[in-house]
């Protein structure tokens, strides 16, 4: 039987918290940026002219149909060679993760917008409202209710996806784990701790998601 020794991690807790901080920071920033990209892309995909919606579809499919790890490595190593601009690992990670999240959020937004009955648009038109206002006041609030579960789901995946930044030496939770493992020779304790930390952050998020879903749906 393996003799667990979590006390061996004691000197490294500072690093672990630091790594968790980086993970959360990457998640928050790329989720916010991804939402902005996704909302804009989703709207233009549904309501924009074809010369806008077709290239956007291309963007979405490229990011949805290639592995995030490949995108990350490509943006970090290949893109700087092509455009001749050096990119720090941090920039490459923020950029890739935001675009990746944006491509998925765009589809969530599009699905939510398209799920709203055409009659809602017509009812707004019939009282003299213009398209933009109908979208903001009538369609989007309802679409967001439809989207909440997929949105939370995607955000949970996004937090877990940030672990891939460790491959380009960004000091997130997983990266610090590998550093600590190399120093302490305690991989079981280290990776168990890390797994527990991810869980402890994400599980409450799923509970909040359930609650929001119920509250938003209360008047349905």
């Amino acid at each position: 039987m393996y003799a667990w020794d979590f006390a061996a991690l004691k000197p490294y807790w500072g690093l672990i918290w630091q790594g968790l901080g980086v993970t959360v920071l990457y998640t928050v920033i790329t989720v916010v940026a991804g939402l902005a990209i996704g909302l804009l892309t989703g709207i233009l995909r549904t309501m924009g002219p074809r010369w806008v919606s077709i290239p956007l579809r291309g963007y979405i499919e490229v990011f949805r149909c290639t592995p995030l790890l490949v995108q990350l490595v490509w943006v970090y190593y290949a893109l700087p060679v092509l455009i001749g601009v050096d990119m720090s690992a941090t920039t490459a990670c923020f950029l890739t993760l935001s675009l990746y999240a944006g491509s998925f959020y765009a589809e969530v937004f599009r699905g939510g917008i398209e799920a709203i009955d055409r009659g809602q648009w017509e009812a707004g038109q019939a009282i003299g409202m213009r398209e933009g206002r109908i979208f903001r006041r009538i369609v989007l609030p309802q679409a967001i209710q439809v989207m909440v579960p997929s949105f939370i789901n995607q955000t949970i995946i996004q937090l877990k996806n940030t672990s891939l930044v460790s491959t380009v030496a960004v000091g997130d939770l997983l990266y610090q784990g590998s550093v600590i493992t190399a120093a302490s020779y305690r991989p079981l304790e280290v990776y168990t701790t890390i797994a527990v930390l991810y869980f402890v952050v994400l599980f409450p998020l799923t509970l909040i998601a359930d609650q929001m879903e119920q509250r938003l749906g209360a008047h349905r």
């Binding site: 009955d117 017509e122 009538i138 309802q142 008047h219």
Partner: peptide, 14 residues
């Protein structure tokens, strides 16, 4: 200036 009422009401559910 022209009001319309629809078969399926189309009230704003939210």
């Amino acid at each position: 200036d022209v009001g319309m009422v629809f078969q399926h009401f189309n009230l704003f559910p939210h």
